[in-house]
């Protein structure tokens, strides 16, 4: 998608953002010594910080490090945390894009820090927490509202029939019908890229709809009507304005907007 299609962040959702926010001076002191890198490039990380134990409003810090260009941005953030400022807080686990812990706003776009390479952002990168969920410390946000939205769509197979002794049959074509939305890792990159979600915390958001889609279009599921009822509500799928931010943000390549459209159509034409 072209840059101009990307919806800009709303100007006034967060009064602490903007040009008046002070940037702390570049830090040079180190804490221990970072490993030497053979073919390093210089990378400056401008990181939006927040720590309620230190001050009430967020601030910016900048760190300049030497990093291997083929490393992940997550590795660079670790270098900052491990050798420059141990107070930097972020979530991470698998480090290769499958656990969904490290969704961040990277140069203005949502992505997983472990799927962005240093060479693609050097010499300077801006890192902020994902938007629309309350920041708790630095890059860590409160995920509870996100998972609450997920739980609202009944994200589990509903089938009240007595199961057969063996597997239920499902043709490869039926299996293919919902394949794309099974890839979701619940990282919240889509939901927190959505301008509607930023402005309306009642909206279940794209990730919840993706997970509803995964069951609504599964031939074994009987809970479609129940889910569609939830999604037809005021807080459901018709909040979507087809901005496509979610599709662009998804690190798993899920066609999120398409999935949302399919759910809308299922409601409008009352069929699955």
């Amino acid at each position: 998608m072209a840059d101009e299609d990307f919806a800009p962040p709303p100007p006034d959702l967060d009064s602490a953002r903007g040009p008046t926010m002070a940037v702390s001076p570049r830090r040079t002191q180190t804490h221990g010594s970072a490993p030497q890198v053979a073919r390093a490039v210089e990378l400056t990380l401008k990181i939006r910080r927040y720590n309620p134990e230190v001050r009430t409003d967020p601030w910016w810090d900048e760190f300049t490090i030497q990093a291997d260009p083929t490393e992940r941005l997550l590795d660079a953030l670790h270098q900052v945390k491990w050798y420059h400022d141990g107070t930097l807080a972020l979530r991470r686990s698998c480090a290769h894009g499958i656990c969904g812990s490290d969704a961040m706003l990277i140069n203005g776009r949502n992505a997983l820090a472990c799927k962005v390479l240093v060479k693609d952002v050097a010499p300077k990168v801006t890192v902020e927490p994902i938007r629309g969920l309350p920041a708790l410390k630095d890059l860590i946000v409160d995920m509870e509202p996100f998972f609450a939205g997920y739980r609202r769509v009944l994200p589990f197979l509903i089938n009240e029939d007595e199961p057969p002794n063996r597997e239920r049959r499902q043709s490869p074509a039926e299996r293919e019908r919902y394949d794309d939305t099974t890839k979701c890792i619940l990282c919240a990159a889509c939901t927190t890229s959505c301008p509607i979600y930023w402005g309306d915390d009642e909206y279940v958001g794209p990730a919840a709809i993706v997970n509803a889609h995964r069951f609504i279009f599964d031939s074994r599921d009987q809970g479609g009507d129940e889910r569609l009822k939830v999604l037809a509500e005021r807080t459901g799928v018709f909040k979507c304005r087809t901005v496509f931010n979610c599709t662009e943000a998804c690190p798993r390549g899920i066609k999120v907007t398409k999935a949302i459209q399919e759910v809308k159509r299922a409601i409008m034409f009352d069929r699955l």
Binding site: E167, Q170, P172, R175, D218
Partner: peptide
């Protein structure tokens, strides 16, 4: 164990006959 996961909705790849 596999059949139980299937009954819980696990999206196994399928054979042309619709089996796991």
């Amino acid at each position: 164990a596999v059949i139980e996961l299937e009954h819980w909705g696990f999206p196994f790849n399928r054979t042309p006959e619709g089996m796991i």
